[in-house]
C-alpha cells in the first residue's frame, strides 16, 4: 500500500491437464497483477480451478503457457519469497513433529544461527497466539489451532507473499472469524502480501482489499473488484455496513452468472 511496486504479475496463464480420458483445460486465460502489500481474495464457483491457479503461483505446477512473475523474475519452481498455507492442515503438518518442530522445519536449510532460527519460531508462534503449545503435537490441538500452526510456519519462513488455499474451509464458524481477523492483523502488522483463495463470498469481501471473481472452468478473471470498505474492519460492524451487503450481493450475482455460463470472456 505504501509503495505501488508490482510484486506478482500473472499474464495469460493457461493450464491443461493431460489424462487418460482426454485433456482437461482447467485454466483458460488468467491475467492480473498484485502490488506489494496487497491482500487479494480469489473467489469462484466450485471446481473452477482455484487450487490449480494457486499451485501455479506457488511454483508447484508448471503452467501450460503464460507467465507468472515474482518481483520481475519468472517463477519456475517453489521460491523462498512465497509460503503456502494448505487447506488440509491435518495432512500439511507433520504429526511426528511437535508444533515447534513443524514451524522450524522449513528454516533448517536457511543459513541461520540456531539462536536466530529459534527467535523466528518463537516470534511466529507468539504472533498466532500459540506460544504455550510449542511442545505439543499438532494432533493434540483443535482444528483451528492446527491451522494457526500452519500460518505460523508460513510467516516464520519470512515470505513476501502468503498464499492461502481455502485455509478455513474445515473449521467451525466461530474459529473461522477469529482466524480471519488473525490474517488481517498479520497482513497489517508484518506487511506481508496475501493471496487468499476461498469459496466463501462473505469471507472474500470481509478480508480482501480486492476480490478476483473467477469464471467456471476453463477459467478466466470475470471481475477484478476493489473493496472500498474502511481499512479497519470488525466482524460485527463491518459485516453490518450497507456497503458490505452491496458488495457481497454483487459478488454473489457475478458467481451465479459464472455458474450459468453467462459471463463474457475478455
Amino acid at each position: 500500500m505504501s509503495d505501488r511496486r508490482t510484486l506478482l504479475r500473472v499474464e495469460h496463464l493457461r493450464k491443461v491437464y493431460e489424462s487418460a480420458t482426454g485433456d482437461v483445460e482447467a485454466i483458460g486465460d488468467i491475467s492480473f497483477t498484485m502490488d506489494a502489500g496487497e491482500l487479494i481474495c480469489v473467489v469462484g464457483p466450485s471446481g473452477c480451478g482455484k487450487t490449480t491457479l494457486l499451485k501455479c503461483l506457488a511454483g508447484l505446477l508448471r503452467p501450460t503457457s503464460g507467465v507468472v512473475e515474482m518481483d520481475g523474475a519468472p517463477v519456475t519452481g517453489p521460491s523462498p519469497a512465497m509460503a503456502v498455507v494448505f487447506q488440509e492442515y491435518g495432512r500439511s503438518l507433520y504429526p511426528w513433529l511437535t508444533v515447534r518442530g513443524n514451524v522450524e522445519l522449513p528454516l533448517r536449510h536457511k543459513k541461520l544461527t540456531r539462536a536466530a532460527r529459534s527467535r523466528l519460531v518463537v516470534d511466529a508462534l507468539e504472533a498466532v497466539g500459540l506460544a504455550h503449545a510449542a511442545r505439543s503435537h499438532p494432533w493434540q490441538l483443535s482444528g483451528g489451532m492446527q491451522q494457526r500452526v500452519a500460518i505460523a510456519r508460513a510467516i516464520a519462513y519470512q515470505p513476501d507473499v502468503l498464499i492461502m488455499d481455502e485455509p478455513f474451509a474445515a473449521v467451525d464458524a466461530q474459529t473461522r472469524a477469529d482466524l480471519e481477523d488473525l490474517v488481517r492483523e498479520l497482513h497489517a502488522s508484518r506487511s506481508i502480501s496475501v493471496v487468499f483463495v476461498t469459496h466463501d463470498i462473505d469471507e472474500s469481501v470481509y478480508l480482501g482489499q480486492r476480490v478476483l471473481v473467477l469464471s467456471t472452468s476453463p477459467t478466466w478473471v470475470q471481475e477484478d473488484l476493489a473493496i472500498d470498505l474502511p481499512p479497519e474492519r470488525d466482524q460485527i460492524t463491518t459485516r453490518a455496513l450497507p456497503r458490505f451487503t452491496q458488495l457481497r450481493t454483487h459478488v454473489y450475482d457475478q458467481i451465479q452468472r459464472a455458474k450459468r455460463g453467462q459471463a463474457v470472456a475478455p
Binding site: 517453489p78 523462498p80 503456502v84 494448505f86 495432512r91 500439511s92 522449513p106 533448517r108 536449510h109 519462513y157
Partner: peptide, 13 residues
C-alpha cells in the same frame, strides 16, 4: 501427497 507438496513448497532439502 499434501505432506510431500508442503515439503516442496518450503524447499525442504
Amino acid at each position: 501427497s499434501v505432506m510431500k507438496e508442503t515439503a516442496r513448497s518450503f524447499q525442504v532439502s
